[in-house]
Amino acid sequence: MNRAAILVAALLIAHPHPVLAGSTCDSSGGGSSSGGSSSSSSSDSDSSYSSSDSSSSESSPAIPRCHDSSDVVGYRECTPFGKWATNVGLPSLIIELGTRFRTTASLAGNHHGTISHSTESFAYRTVAAPEAGLEQQVVSALRLGAASRRGVFFAVDVELGSITASTPTNHEMMSSGVFGSPTLTQDSGMAFNAAAVIGMRRAFGRGRLGVEVAGGVRAATYSLVSTYHNCETTTTLASAAPLLEARVGYEHWFNPFMSFGATAGASVIDRGSWMGGLHIGFHSRAFGASR
């Protein structure tokens, strides 16, 4: 699951267009480098071509979409004036990758289901133990968002991970067969959480302090192992519940486009549930356009 999250993030960040514009760095690509001659080649990414005096055109199999013989304003067609300034009009995009630790109420209780062994089928139910504590999750987290110049941001958080410590759940068989009733035991579990986030971040020294509210859904799957006579089978129990959290965070700037941060929060609907996490952030505008 961690690998899946990293893969998704890697795919996303491997195609950072339009704002995190690859080799040309700025989203615009700009007019061109000054080559000492008005016939110098254009380096604009949109034109994806060089003028005839550039050797790169010989090795490029791509058909040029546009060709400029000059990079001088008024004489060029492919790149409008001031493309280097387009970034200013865009919100700062955010990509954050991290790991979070959560304690939360188990979703394994209060379910009905059936489990089959050969030709026999058995009904069961799960009941949360009254003294059960909170289960623990370690999840990989991916955030995609956009921030305004005023520091307000909107984001989507997706988390995927494992339930590292589950709470005891009572499993009651509601029917029996030729050899009695199966024995149910809870095995591993996985967690998936998704939330929309709104918050505000303010510059604070070399970093930013922020508050945010996240609302969405938390889901979990639990593997139940059923043993009946000489037969063992596994079934999966899936459940979901609303998620609503208040969080605070701090992020420190490594450089104008990268930050390292920590977040902590608590659920406002599940008593005692809390979370904490660390992340690395990538921003399309310097210091998240907050300075």
Partner: peptide, 23 residues
């Protein structure tokens, strides 16, 4: 020389660079 009337006052984002050639 600005036959298309493109030239205008623009803003360059923080820690970014750009270039133009004008006749």
């Amino acid at each position: 020389y600005d036959p298309k009337g493109e030239l205008t006052v623009l803003r360059l984002d923080g820690r970014q660079a750009g270039s133009e050639a004008i006749s």
